[in-house]
């Protein structure tokens, strides 16, 4: 099994962190993983993105161009990547910023009002965690426990006091998946 993900959004929306947590979580589950940040010409157009691969086999290309899963945190990144997702794949998109999204046949699509939920939690910065929680719920690619454990390793020590808030956001996102 090889599962490929693109996480995309504006710079500052924390899409790199979403990717790191997915990769770290996969590693903690004993998988082979890669994380690769957008680089060079891909930076143009105001979107930042990263590629994550989680696999039972050694990972080939760390650059994902036909993902199984997409997390799109804003309109431009949704537009850029929506057509690249493989048939049967999944898209979690930030419905706080993407008001109308076309239904793409053959894909699981989940709108998540990440900014609204994050505001309810009292910190707009954890919108990315809401999206990640929803993505994990939808795809089961890693467990919530792995994502929580990954937080401890990825976040610098000085931010560890924010872990409970991040976990709450992850859980909120996950709860959206029935």
């Amino acid at each position: 099994m090889t599962y490929e993900i693109i996480c995309a959004g504006f710079g500052g929306q924390g899409v790199m962190l979403i990717g790191e947590l997915l990769a770290y979580g996969g590693m903690l589950e004993g998988k082979n993983v890669t994380w690769f940040p957008s680089y060079g010409p891909e930076m143009r157009g105001g979107t930042a993105n990263c590629s994550v691969v989680i696999s039972d086999q050694p990972v080939g290309s760390p650059i994902v161009s036909e993902p199984d899963g997409l997390i799109a945190m804003n309109g431009p990144s949704f537009e850029k990547f929506k057509g690249t997702v493989k048939p049967g794949g999944a898209i979690v998109y930030n419905s706080s910023m993407i008001e109308t999204a076309p239904v793409i046949p053959g894909l699981k699509m989940l709108p998540v009002p990440t900014n609204d939920i994050a505001s309810e939690l009292g910190n707009n910065k954890v919108a990315n965690m809401v999206a990640l929680g929803a993505f994990i719920g939808l795809t089961k690619i890693i467990t919530l426990a792995s994502a929580e454990k990954a937080l401890e390793q990825v976040l610098p020590e000085r931010h560890h006091k924010l872990i409970p808030l991040n976990v709450a956001a992850l859980e909120k996102g996950m709860a959206l998946v029935k």
């Binding site: 790191e20 990769a23 590693m27 082979n32 993983v33 890669t34 994380w35 690769f36 940040p37 680089y39 060079g40 990972v59 760390p62 650059i63």
Partner: peptide, 10 residues
């Protein structure tokens, strides 16, 4: 190269 340098892997 830049890809190998920027890529994170366990």
């Amino acid at each position: 190269d830049a890809i190998m340098g920027q890529m994170m892997e366990p």
